[in-house]
Design a protein around this nucleic acid. Structure first.
Lengths: 251, 251
DNA sequence: GTCAATACTTTGTCATGACAAACTCGGGGA
DNA sequence: TCCCCGAGTTTGTCATGACAAAGTATTGAC
């Protein structure tokens, strides 16, 4: 009676021979329908029980699929009411990607200049952030990132050498996170601190900013699924050209 | 044979009369043991099946409890191997709370000065952010937030009047998010943009900063579970006294 | 006509049982 | 001695069934 689109997921289609889990197949199907707008924002989807029956899967499986989309901010559930579409796109919890990835995705023609690359023992502050013993050998990198021909960010990173050996050429051509992933290292957890301060004269010159211009600062430590620290980074961005965009979902 | 601490969760203690879900009771218990260091980093916890039996709950319940901690980055699971502690503290996904809440939690004695409070038709930019029609009546607020006796942030907010009526006294004594929650309005999804810029002379004066000091800026729109926009905010923080801390987990 | 109690709908929690997939480790064969 | 294979362990997925809790809608009383 309301604005029911009553998402008809029509032709049942789960492939039980596929190695892809059923709940994921269902979630993907739902996500497609929502992204294509076939279930419009505000519309309620079928209740779990009916949906499960029609798709020929159990209720827990259906539930898990829906839960998956709820966690991504597409759906909202209310006990006694139903499940509603609240946003037609996935709102990612917050990207765990590198600046390079973002720029490529945004078509902003990134270019990287490697200013420094050397192996050195980790100073206390960095060892602390990486949760390794002081003096542990790390690769120390300083890079200048350009976008659209203009300098955008000055980036400092430390990567334990037993995590990944790095070369200048690799870093000039690819983002750090891309290199990590290529070597089977997936950042899964990170802590970031975002702040701001005025540029030092040297920074201002490097970044083509005026003296004392505002810079965005970001320090981050990233761990893989096994709890091993992969990377510590301390970066400064030109505030006039860059900002962080976050999508949060709580609950 | 390895460095097994083999987390003995000892005296079974789940309270079936409590309204708190069993899985949550188990998760909380585990979290305590880990935070207290009784299960040390690197140690494996008991396998799901045994743990379930000993606690007198079903395996799915135990699983859900463990899953909860995995999502928060405390534990890591490996099929065929077991579940390991990787970090002794909860890494929260990202808080959807207000500055006021954070300051209270951090014991920094917040105080709020309401500089302005009026109902006005929403200008285009704000109506756009809130996804409402231009001209829709909103309560417009300007607040100055102190912490530890010093000014910390200058905050501008717009709240549609049909969401919540606000008074000066309420705002002086409580955080905006607290007021929302008290009225049954729970922010569930938000998009934020964090940037930086130099203070205008007026801002510098209000915030007791020097001319041209760096400020952190944050604009946010928050929605409730039903997809209704609750709040638009545009805030500036003294970069010398404040920064954003985020914990990300990608899965 | 208005308000409160009741029935219904829908999600939330929990149990039990079963099999599959990934990893570890030990034993047997080359 | 080294490597491969199989047994054992542990998490991953899925089904079925049941009841509880929170909303919504309906009905009945005043």
């Amino acid at each position: 009676m309301t604005s029911e689109l009553q998402g008809r997921i029509r032709p049942v289609e789960v492939d039980r021979t596929s190695p892809v889990p059923l709940y994921f197949q269902v979630a993907t199907r739902l996500q497609e329908l929502i992204e294509k707008g076939e279930i419009g924002v505000g519309a309620r989807i079928e209740n779990e029980v009916d949906l499960a029956e029609r798709l020929g899967v159990s209720r827990p499986t259906t539930r898990r699929a829906i839960q998956y989309l709820v966690e991504r901010g597409m759906l909202v559930r209310k006990r006694g009411v139903g499940t509603q579409v609240v946003h037609p796109k996935v709102r990612r919890p917050v990207e765990l990607s590198s600046l390079y990835d973002d720029l490529v995705a945004g078509d902003r023609a990134p270019r990287t200049e490697v200013l420094r690359l050397e192996v050195m023992p980790a100073p206390d502050a960095i060892a602390n952030a990486l949760e390794v013993a002081p003096g542990t050998p790390v690769t120390w990198i300083e890079r200048l990132r350009y976008a659209g021909g203009e300098p955008l960010a000055l980036m400092h990173n430390a990567i334990p050498i037993d995590v990944l050996p790095l070369t200048r050429d690799d870093l000039a051509a690819h983002g750090l996170y891309e290199l990590l992933r290529r070597n089977g290292l997936t950042p899964r957890i990170a802590t970031q601190v975002i702040g701001a301060r005025s540029a030092t004269p040297a920074e201002a010159k490097t970044l083509a900013e005026k003296r004392g211009a505002s810079l965005l600062t970001m320090t981050r430590t990233a761990w893989d699924g096994g709890g091993r620290a992969l990377e510590y980074g301390s970066h400064v961005y030109r505030a006039s050209r860059y900002s962080f965009e976050l999508n949060l979902s709580a609950g």
